[in-house]
Amino acid sequence: MTKVTMTVNGKTVSKEVEGRTLLSAMLREQLNLTGTHIGCDTSQCGACVVHVNGEAVKSCTMFAAEADGAEVKTIEGMANADGSLSTIQAAFQEHHGLQCGFCTPGMVMSAAALLKDNPKPSEAEVREYLEGNLCRCTGYHNIVKAIMAASGQDVPAVAAE
């Protein structure tokens, strides 16, 4: 067991972990941040995406020990300071970009990472960026719409149903 210390959603936390402890497991089991989900075991589904030092990573494919000293942000840290939904979260609700909600935390985290790097992505860029996030409910239509809307762009005319 080794001790790791990191900042999670602005709070400093220290935990004893095994070498094999994944960042996702530490978040879910030791910090009770269960918004980060596990949907596969081959690093494909993206339900576990969090930000480490500002970059989107799959927390199920990173050891907790590797995040020692890092700044980690999870879905629980995405709302505005007053608890209201952030622009991206609000856009997901407004445009029905979620159904069962299981992939949603990873989608929101990926969307945030995309918009940080590319504030006005095209529809194709949004779709391409979401390559590592699987959703089985929405057919992605409304997720793409929500992200386009969160970027302040008019959603494509075709997306108006």
Partner: peptide, 21 residues
Amino acid sequence: SKRREDLRFLTGKGKYTDDIN
């Protein structure tokens, strides 16, 4: 109507079975 369940899903507060210990 906007979905009321979205508030918990969008903030990581959903309670799925694996979240139960």
